[in-house]
Design a protein around this nucleic acid. Sequence first.
DNA 1: TGCGTACCGTACCGTACGGTTCGGTGTCAA
DNA 2: TTGACACCGAACCGTACGGTACGGTACGCA
Lengths: 229, 229
Amino acid sequence: MTSAAHPILRPERSTATSREVGETASAPESEFSERQREVLDVVLQLMVAEGDGFSVAAVARAASCSKETLYKWFGDRDGLLTATVRWQASKVRMPKLPSDRLTRDGLAAALTGFAASWLTVITGDLSIALNRAAVSHAGSGKSRLGEIVLTNGPFAMKRRIEPLLEAGRAAGLLDFEDLADAFRSFFGLVVADTQIRLLLGDDSHPDDAEIRILSARAVTKFLTLYGRG
Amino acid sequence: MTSAAHPILRPERSTATSREVGETASAPESEFSERQREVLDVVLQLMVAEGDGFSVAAVARAASCSKETLYKWFGDRDGLLTATVRWQASKVRMPKLPSDRLTRDGLAAALTGFAASWLTVITGDLSIALNRAAVSHAGSGKSRLGEIVLTNGPFAMKRRIEPLLEAGRAAGLLDFEDLADAFRSFFGLVVADTQIRLLLGDDSHPDDAEIRILSARAVTKFLTLYGRG
DNA sequence: TGCGTACCGTACCGTACGGTTCGGTGTCAA
DNA sequence: TTGACACCGAACCGTACGGTACGGTACGCA
């Protein structure tokens, strides 16, 4: 049963209920109601705590809602998972990139900020839990979790960083022929083996200071490879 | 229940049975008997085909053996998984590294060969399936799968590549201060986003030709960063 | 020939979980 | 006040699966 077969995942039921009162005018337009967001946040906590092995009953218990409501809102367990991942994805905000004329320092700072932001995200417990769930679901077909995480993870980073690289090239600060190749190098230098090690259970979580160092080093190397002048 | 509690995972039962006849003298000393290896290979096929969602009954059916025997040999389902991963790990052979005096070309060739070999492994269906299983099990504690894959994956690559880097430095071909940093760069340039994308279900499997190109590019960049002269 | 061992195939058991149903409660709107 | 609605909590159902037990077969060995 696909989630599309359920009217549930449609944004905001048309008739405002008591629980939705107060957000009909002021709420951020979200795919989910306030109460639904609460529930999804509980699911996120559960995923961090126990992976995706939790039962629907456990969600209901932890969120103080009934299983019936969960099934009504999300269709089935997979719909609940999917909604959770999408809810989390909607919360992630990428760092701002400089829009004015690029200088070499500005470019380096933007790249470093981006690298640090990305490392902070992927080393977070939440990201690790979600990526683990997505990876296992990608194995057994039957679910679009992997696709969603892929879109909001590596692909989103790529879409976000490539304009910056292009701008750097246009400003004469970077020199590369193959944009995809440049992105690949950037991703590799930044992430390296950090993510796969964490996903496999290595507990070498870098702290903020280490992340700053790693980011700066990665950008230095990237500029050594692709910088101009 | 840990696998150590079971006498099963001990190498080769002391009394040779009919099924083991013919290997008592000539067999490669393996942790597992011939029949056990057959079973574990079936498990590998199942993992590639359906992820780690298969049932023990499915293994017994596919391997034409009884569940009772599986539990006798491997203790429980997790023991079966663990044995399978260890069996696969024992099959992997790293590429030979040059032992004579290093030249720049020799070093580059060794690094390229290593990179290509590594990319070939991690883009293989088997590696993807095993890494997926290990990643999901790493999430819910309760299993050492992640640890094993970590040891035979990223850590093994590191142990293997670092002596080569050291040799390159000793021969005056490479210049770096932090060995771990150099390895990190190498890993990142070679693997980049390839592995995580495949684990998440992206179907961009590079073929041999692409792998050769990716490896050559990665090594060129690595030598740009760390090469001397 | 008979015993012990290792194994297969199958039936069986307990449980956990996905999903459904139902009675009860609070709230809104007419 | 009454009815519709959304929700909670709990009971319930079917099934799939991990793990065990048992009967039957092949074979080595005394």
